[in-house]
């Protein structure tokens, strides 16, 4: 009697082992892809940041952490860091607020809802360079549409050079980015809203909850996981986004719109200092990592992660 049982147990163990191994085999293609496409460039960049390297010369000189020290003691880079923080917080905050508002509006029943939902995606689908050029003329200080409207309704007397003043240039770029990013949040949050079962809202209603209370107590907590992941992605994208600055202001006037990616780009391609440029990118990656981890912890403490399960 014992012998067949042993055989049976051994066979079960073998099967479990095989299943354990096969799950790793299934993961292998994706893992290889991630290591090749993401892991390898990160490691290469980190190594490069420890060298003095001019791409037009073949030789590299190992300088250790000198590039990091040099970059962190450069006042222009510190300005770029603070600009990046303002840029990311400002853009993402307004996109979340208006995106949430947009999602609520698009979730209502009204005529032509499908068409309106489609049209709201236009800013998001517009290529960034095209959007930048379009807004450059809307915000133009001499012939811009915005100045014209504001003057006609009597809010200003003289046209404002929006992108030519240190005080308004960053806000102008943020306006463009917010305009482009709202549909992304609106559509993602709308999709999350539509997965909420109607009977939950019905139950809330029966329990005496009004629309406001039902939204904050039922809808919002269930949307939170989507909001969280959408926000994280947007933080990373916004921090790395430099098309607008490059086309509209080139980081000016007087460094007022210079962000880390643009500073890194200039350091690499006009100053030909790849080592320092990758050190800048490395610092940005580290800062982003800290922000994302803190954000994830904060949200998981609030239970946002659990709601998604």
């Amino acid at each position: 009697m014992n012998e067949p049982l042993t055989v049976h147990v051994k066979a079960g163990e073998k099967k479990r082992k095989r299943t354990g191994l096969s799950k790793y085999l299934y993961l292998l293609p994706a893992a290889l892809l991630i290591v090749g496409v993401i892991g390898y460039p990160i490691v290469r960049a980190l190594i490069l940041s420890l060298y003095a390297y001019n791409p037009l010369n073949s030789g590299k000189t190992f300088v250790g952490l000198k590039n990091y020290v040099g970059v962190l003691s450069d006042s222009t880079f510190l300005k770029a860091m603070s600009n990046t923080a303002i840029w990311v917080v400002g853009c993402v905050f307004f996109q979340v607020v208006f995106g949430l508002l947009g999602a609520v509006l698009l979730n209502q029943n009204f005529r032509g809802r499908g068409v309106i939902r489609g049209l709201t995606l236009i800013p998001w689908a517009t290529p960034s360079v095209l959007a930048a050029m379009m807004w450059m003329w809307i915000l133009d200080g001499n012939y811009g549409l915005l100045n014209d409207i504001l003057m006609r309704i009597g809010l200003i007397v003289h046209p404002i050079p929006w992108i030519s003043q240190t005080g308004t240039a960053m806000a102008s770029l943020m306006l463009i980015d917010v305009w482009q990013g709202i549909p992304y949040f609106a559509v993602m949050l709308l999709a999350a809203m539509q997965t909420i079962p109607g009977d939950l809202l019905e139950a809330a209603k029966l329990d005496g909850a009004g629309a406001w209370k039902a939204f904050w107590k039922v809808v919002f907590p269930l949307m939170l996981p989507t909001l969280m992941i959408t926000t994280i992605l947007r933080i990373v994208w916004t921090a790395s986004y430099m098309d607008l600055m490059m086309v509209v202001t080139q980081g000016g006037p007087a460094y007022s719109t210079l962000t880390i990616p643009l500073a890194s780009y200039y350091r690499a391609y006009t100053d030909l200092k790849y080592g320092e440029a990758t050190a800048m990118a490395g610092i940005q990656a580290l800062l982003l990592l800290i922000v994302v981890v803190l954000y994830l912890r904060l949200m998981s403490n609030k239970g946002a992660l659990d709601n998604g399960k």
């Binding site: 133009d140 200080g141 001499n142 012939y143 046209p159 050079p161 992108i163 030519s164 240039a169 000016g252």
Partner: peptide
């Protein structure tokens, strides 16, 4: 010069 001179490129120059 126009107050936008700080950021004016070729397109703005010719348009003006």
């Amino acid at each position: 010069t126009p107050p936008t001179a700080v950021s004016d490129g070729f397109a703005q120059l010719t348009a003006g």
